[in-house]
Design a protein around this nucleic acid. Structure first.
Ligand SMILES: [Mn+2]
Ligand SMILES: [Mn+2]
Ligand SMILES: [Zn+2]
Ligand SMILES: [Zn+2]
Lengths: 150, 150
DNA sequence: TTTAAATCTGGATTCATTCCAAATTTCATG
DNA sequence: CATGAAATTTGGAATGAATCCAGATTTAAA
């Protein structure tokens, strides 16, 4: 549930890499439950991360945090809805969650399944046709698929 | 298995939209089994199509062709390996197979799951960073995600 | 505190896709 | 045209990511 105080904040989480997990949740209007705080600490450690639910669940287990896989899925989706994460689909049957919510694109290394960020300003897409009537552009994803072997 | 005669052909299937299903298979070095010919007829009807395995299986059933779902999957993958199709991933948990194997990109309409082609020449991606050492660019996919509501 | 709403959880379930081993079909060869 | 080895097909089982569910627990407004 949203409370009045959620509406008076200006700064975006992405702008402030050093903010604490609890603050981040508060700003996003999410209750700071034990599980969410724990997962936020793992996710927002300063690096840009691209993780699957299973990977994050594994990392939490390793760190002796008790969180069910169902909650990891719930949390990742909640964080995504709140704009704290972005979902990236590059392979059928697997979703990555990206802690970098700024405008950017990706290298995808086919064999390893690794995602690498390409800053949005580095890459330019020109000649975009108009969106079909009755639709609007929600997002432009550029995925550069890489194979091993230079 | 490939035979000697597979190697002496020049023209690419994509260049000749009117060729028969059996010819297409022969040129790709695939045996013209009843199932493959039937599916090729459905797929390469002149239009550019983006179908899932389930959709194609449904269409085959409707047309009173008896083909198992396992064979549809096998065939789609074989056609893709042979360069007759291209696999497109835009949503987790679902693969589309594209009869347009020329260089192009896609609009993806979020709600309906529809894919629309954007000719490759219409769109230009500039400022591509160099591929990381030990890798080469296999493909560049641009996906423009559309939401309903102009 | 009290208590309703929100959240968490293990287990069942869904669903696309893959796997499997037996049955059938294709086709090079004689 | 017949033979046989290799390729292909197939129904059903298995997989694995993701979702669903309903009961137990936690959060936070009042
Ligand atoms: Mn996963
Ligand atoms: Mn499908
Ligand atoms: Zn990223
Ligand atoms: Zn296409």
């Amino acid at each position: 549930m949203q409370t009045m105080t959620d509406l008076i904040h200006a700064p975006t989480p992405a702008e402030d890499p050093g903010i604490q997990a609890t603050d981040r949740l508060a700003r996003a209007g999410l209750r700071p439950t034990r599980q969410r705080v724990a997962l936020a600490k793992l996710l927002f450690d300063g690096r840009d991360r691209h993780v699957t639910a299973e990977q994050l669940h594994g990392q939490a287990s390793t760190a002796d945090m008790r969180v069910s896989l169902a909650t990891v899925y719930n949390t990742l989706h909640q964080f995504t809805e709140a704009g704290l994460l972005r979902e990236v689909v590059v392979e059928a049957g697997r979703s990555y969650f990206d802690t970098n919510v700024s405008d950017h694109h990706h290298f995808f290394v086919e064999g390893s399944g690794h995602l690498l960020d390409i800053p949005g300003h580095a890459l330019e897409v020109s000649g975009l046709p108009e969106a079909p009537a009755g639709t609007r552009v929600a997002r432009v994803d550029v995925i550069i698929r890489l194979s091993a072997g230079g």
